[in-house]
Design a binder for these strands. Structure first.
Lengths: 202, 202, 202, 202
DNA sequence: CGGTAAACGAGACGGTACGTCGTGTCTTTGA
DNA sequence: TCAAAGACACGACGTACCGTCTCGTTTACCG
């Protein structure tokens, strides 16, 4: 698509933002999230820890939660580069394990709480959804399609529902905490989803 | 230790608590949660709206979130009295629809956010889990067992995982908001879980 | 006027204000004014030094300047109890000396700056004017009237102008600082005002 | 000192300063002082209103108050060109009227507050004192001396005190605001100072 | 029936964090 | 090399709630 998107550059006047400052802020936010949980992530705390003025933070983020989310997004490899193996189902299990590990981490736990605490349709929510939920689902969808092609999964399945069945349990256990979130569980999820609950016809 | 726990009644001296005050507090909390979301639920706000002193609230609840949760629990029929029909699967669908409706309501949405925002293992969390999650799961388990007995569901399934597959998607859509949470969806969840993803053997 | 002024008492509900807190705030304000001048008198500074929360101060005063003025008014004997001597003129000189000393002090200097910085007709200004300017003028007026009776001052003088001539130079020197403000000066002011600039008729 | 001070011209390299910029800054400062009082005069406000960068202002003035004072000095005829009449006393009255009018203006009121708020011996203070107070006093002194020569004023008067008596009341009324500052008042000041308070000997 | 103890409203209090504004210094690009 | 634009560290602003406390008042019960 050459020539498209004229990319209005709007050359920025004045002193450019210092990337080191941005990095310090994100680092501070992540450290606070890790050490003190969601409630420890305050604008004042971040500013103090990063050695930065509050207005500097407000210039880029509207509130402390945004900073924490940015930090999470920045520090986390959103494309969790799966080594495609022969079996799409095995790949799915691998992806689920990684996701679970990521969100079960200190920071991940905090971000999950953060997301949950964010009511309504905010920019924050959209960013998170795009970076993690949708990306995971897109990958998952590709894997499922490959599985369909390989004959491991039946055609004509309701893709949206199937994907929810796969990814929802992770967040569910994370939030409710009624049972552990480990790789045995995520593997079981895939197995059970694959097999269904109906008795096998024979 | 038979006969132990003599149940020291500790005859209550002084003025007894006024049940109307308690009701006013819960009412105020619920109204605030409905109208202004989670952030509107503050101790001061509740006290002002209920025409009550702050210490009166602190006498019974440790923080504003607890009050909101109490209000939700109090106002909500936790036993969602299912009319048992002939088909356990149909009953399951019915239960899921009710759950979805409950949590998709203004108040339910608020409580969900509240729960999500509650990090760590608090009394609040436990109460919520007991009243809603575990109760739903217990009912669901009974239904599944009946379905097994009826031959609709295969024996030997991993019950914990199966229940998570059933209930997780509701919270997932509620929290992430990537797709609507309606009865069509909850029905599809049951259907897909039942059928599994594998191609039907013939 | 018996029976008049029904004096609606409006019994104060809730916890009464702690006079010790009030005292601590005023003390802190005065110390700051003394040590760091007007710019050192900040709400945050006062709160920190008094070991008091900011809202506690805002409950009684609208801004830092008010606190400083209150402190000055509180700590200062506004009725500078003059020992009435035989000569009203001598009494006037004595009063002027005291006034000059009061406002030339560290705190007095600060308050003067404060007053000057207060543009417009604020409550603050009115309070200050009432406590110091008007009180001084009232005393001065009495002294002048006694002097008229004693034949030391001519009758029919423009009292307002005369009083301004007496009190203005103190503030003038204080604010402009073009020449020292000492008792020699204040005595000279009285002498010159008394004698006038015209050559003495003989 | 002939030949000395070779007047190192320091050939100005680069872009020369734009005199229009200076004017814009002073104009903005004066407008702000007029419209919003002393507190409205901020570096940021001036820069924004003048369409000028903050450093440009800091290059010439150390703080916002200085700019405001400069603006006042620049826009104001400091030599209030008195038409010398036959009577020095009448000239004095005329001068006092002009002074009062000048400082009673919106801007003048602001500058007065500014001066008063300036504690300590700053450059600002000195500049103001030199431009207005001392200049007025010098003129006044000349007039008084002429009056002495004319026999209207007694010789041997304490000149410093006399001048304070003349000029102080203007600032006093301006700052305290207990009574109006009009030409009737300034005329009365002169009259009363001239006549003194003592009864006329006969 | 009168004392006493707790509940209750009101609100003061020491705090913490909020989000904004102004300061004075700096580092860019553009003229 | 000056000017504009604006980033930056800093610090104070005034507000909102927090959770604790001290009041005076009300309402039961118990002696």
């Amino acid at each position: 698509m050459p020539g498209a998107k004229p990319k209005i550059v709007m050359k920025p006047r004045g002193r450019p933002r210092d990337p080191k400052v941005r990095a310090a802020i994100l680092k501070a936010a992540r450290e606070l999230l890790d050490s003190g949980g969601l409630t420890a992530v305050t604008m004042e705390g971040i500013a103090a820890r990063a050695g930065v003025g509050k207005p500097t933070i407000y210039r880029e983020w509207p509130n402390a939660h945004s900073v924490a989310l940015s930090a999470f997004l920045e520090f986390t490899p959103s494309d969790m580069e799966l080594r495609a193996s022969a079996s799409p189902i095995a790949d799915l299990k691998q992806q689920l394990r990684k996701l679970a590990a990521l969100f079960a981490s200190r920071t991940g736990r905090g971000v999950t709480a953060l997301i949950a605490a964010t009511q309504g349709e905010t920019e924050l929510m959209k960013a998170f959804r795009h970076h993690f939920i949708l990306k995971s689902r897109a990958e998952g969808q590709k894997l499922l399609e490959r599985a369909v092609a390989a004959g491991d999964v039946r055609a004509g399945l309701n893709m949206d529902v199937a994907l929810d069945l796969i990814y929802a349990p992770i967040y569910f256990r994370l939030l409710i905490g009624h049972a552990p979130l480990d790789s045995a569980f995520t593997d079981d999820v895939i197995d059970t989803v694959m097999a269904g609950l109906k008795p096998h016809k024979r």
